[in-house]
Design a protein around this nucleic acid. Structure first.
Lengths: 388, 388
DNA sequence: GCGAATACGTTTCATCATGCAAAGAACTGG
DNA sequence: CCAGTTCTTTGCATGATGAAACGTATTCGC
């Protein structure tokens, strides 16, 4: 146990090259020394000298299996001991907590969901405390990350969270008192983008956007290998985005904005109204798949709107790739034709095709994002937004 | 002359710290050593050691006037000898060449405009050669930058330039043969953003967007202190942007896209049609100012559309600031109320206000951007897109 | 005026990180 | 088993760096 704690202390203390090196290994997976030297722009000698004490202290390990190749001495792979670290990620919504226990590479080890019995900060903090204790039964977690649909400027205080009706709640402190672990807060989309950036498919491109559809519409952005954190990230930047002048109205009275067209509730309520009975989101998509005219119309319009949103992101943020995710993203698969048509419509024909990746949605993804933020914060010391 | 050439050779040869230091001085203006040391994160000792040879070789100079302050030895300001360098910037359009001669800080020393007598590459290159010779009468320019509405991937070849109907024209080589100077090409909006970034108001913010309206609608972006250069930068990313479903149609048949609503030709032709006589852009704005109902309607709709475009940029690219420029930007002043209304409409009320700066348009701005690219290329050796 | 006080800039010196080059190590293929 | 090849380590010289002491140019108080 003390050894684990010692190892926990090691990362933040790393200096320039040792830090960059460990980060590279963490993010780009096991690598031979030679390749690491090339990536970091240092000589092989320096690399050996830097790696040696890190192996000694346990920050890095050397894999048993050498990298088989042609002639010559086979390369030994340097890696992080990912599976000996534990981090907790918690996604906080207005109804429940979704938590995951992960290793150092944000691979999920365990997962739990619990309902909230009240939204007062103290109650929520206590519930998070119990969730963390439940997930981290071995008590060897290094840090806790919490993500939510709202704004935190410092990672310690919830500056704003509309669906919780919180303002300036020092949630990190409360949860630290409950768990005894370091806690870091972050907007849910920044967290998801962070996870994608370090531990997902976003590793391979220097810039990408994440669009999520579900109860809300979310947007996160990575440019020049760094997450874009604007003071407004996390409040509905894309929610009011106008997509279809003939579309349904949102609660604010806008016609055809992203909130009204794309959210699960927006779609299911449109279908429900037409069918004069409550139709859930899944059923609405099923009806559309089956050819139900009303559902098809609603879903096609939504797909079209999603496509135009994608085009807008591609045109204005110019990412190399756009990831689609969120609990309602099945829409993109059901209405892919309409999505692509929407993209084409608002995109210059001469422009290169937009690289859109629909991610298989998994209810752990949001919490994994929170864990990724905890990992980043632990590994980088403080600068969460810094890139690879 | 040889001394100038020597100095020209010095910049690219600078190594790490000397290069960062000189760049900081170039971009942030004259600075005392102490402040430079703090900004670069090195000790005062290292700073002195680094500056000394740069002063010796003439890359940097020390201002005569010390910085008056409180008690203590007054600081001496380190600066670049901006006025002893010359760069040429040329903006290439389908009708004419606009050229400026600048110093090392992109301050304009001279300016010329000439009409093109043909669009064949050889003719254009010859015309640019004459323009450069005319501007750079002292023959002491270091490099030439050329910007245009199109795409160049390598700074040497015009990959695409719709209004010139060029494909893969090795313009840089042609102009180098004509002038004997190093030549670099860049998209006009990347160039304008680059000028704003290094030598304009963009210096003070790590991210900003540039929106231009004129014959076309242009968009450039700087994030994390680096210009965003996407393979599609320069082709009409925002031109097809839908802004008003009831708006006029563009040549491609889109209703109310940015091209149709915001360009000078779009506005003047709408007013012309209504008045059944040709009305120029300036006159259209004057009519609107004077209360002419038709012009007012067109201009108000355009202002509203511009506001929505600004909101879209603010929402999706999340810049700290948005600069408005271009030969038609007077629109923003005439219809500022409508612009702001458009911004508000598509912006979450809880979001922070968008920081919009309308720049006084000056016909030299485009060419100055080209000069800025030449300066950046010269100073950085090759990586044009690298930031400060 | 004249000595504190103060802040900026330079030099000295010891340290440390780094690269080069040579040696060592671990494999493949004849 | 030896040559060939590639990865890794070690020895050595070099050069960059920071701490601290020193030097310098000003203001302030008397």
């Amino acid at each position: 146990m003390t050894q684990l704690e010692d190892r926990g202390q090691v990362w933040p203390a790393l200096d320039g090259l040792a830090r960059d090196l460990s980060l590279e290994v963490l993010i780009r997976g096991p690598l031979p020394r030679r390749e690491l030297a090339a990536k970091l722009g240092v000589s092989a000698a320096t690399l050996t000298r830097t790696v040696a004490p890190l192996l000694e202290s346990g920050v890095l390990i050397e894999l048993e299996e050498p990298l088989a190749g042609g002639p010559g001495r086979p390369a030994r792979l340097v890696d992080v001991p990912a599976s000996t670290h534990r981090f907790v990620g918690v996604k906080l919504t207005g109804e429940c907590l979704h938590g995951v226990l992960t290793d150092l590479r944000a691979d999920i080890v365990a997962s739990r969901t619990v309902d909230l019995d009240g939204l007062e900060p103290a109650r929520v903090a206590a519930a998070i405390g119990r969730l963390v204790a439940d997930l981290d039964a071995g008590q060897d977690a290094t840090a806790v990350g919490i993500s939510f649909g709202g704004v935190s400027h410092d990672g310690r205080t919830v500056a704003r969270a509309p669906f919780l009706e919180w303002h300036d709640v020092a949630l990190a402190r409360l949860v630290e008192q409950a768990t005894g672990l370091p806690v870091i807060l972050e907007n849910d989309l920044v967290a998801l983008a962070g996870a994608e950036h370090w531990f997902g498919e976003g590793r391979t491109v220097p810039s990408f956007a994440v669009l999520t559809i579900g109860i809300g519409v979310g947007y996160g952005l990575v440019v020049h290998d760094r997450v874009v954190t604007h003071r407004d990230v996390g409040i509905g930047l894309v929610g009011h985005y106008p997509l279809d002048p003939q579309g349904p109205r949102c609660p604010n009275g806008h016609h055809g904005c992203a909130e009204a067209m794309l959210t699960t509730t927006g779609i299911s309520s449109q279908v429900s109204v037409a069918h004069r009975r409550p139709v859930g989101y899944g059923e609405a998509l099923e009806l559309a798949r089956g050819g139900d005219p009303v559902a098809l119309e609603v879903v096609t319009a939504a797909g079209h709107a999603l496509g135009r949103l994608i085009a807008a992101v591609a045109n204005l943020a110019m990412p190399d790739r756009i990831f689609l995710s969120g609990e309602g993203i099945e829409l993109a698969r059901v209405a892919w034709g309409a999505v692509w048509e929407g993209v084409q419509r608002d995109r210059d024909p001469a422009a290169s095709p937009v690289d859109v990746v629909v991610q298989p949605y998994d209810s752990d993804q949001w919490a994994r994002g929170a864990a990724a933020i905890a990992i980043q914060h632990h590994v980088l010391g403080s600068a969460v937004t810094a890139g690879s």
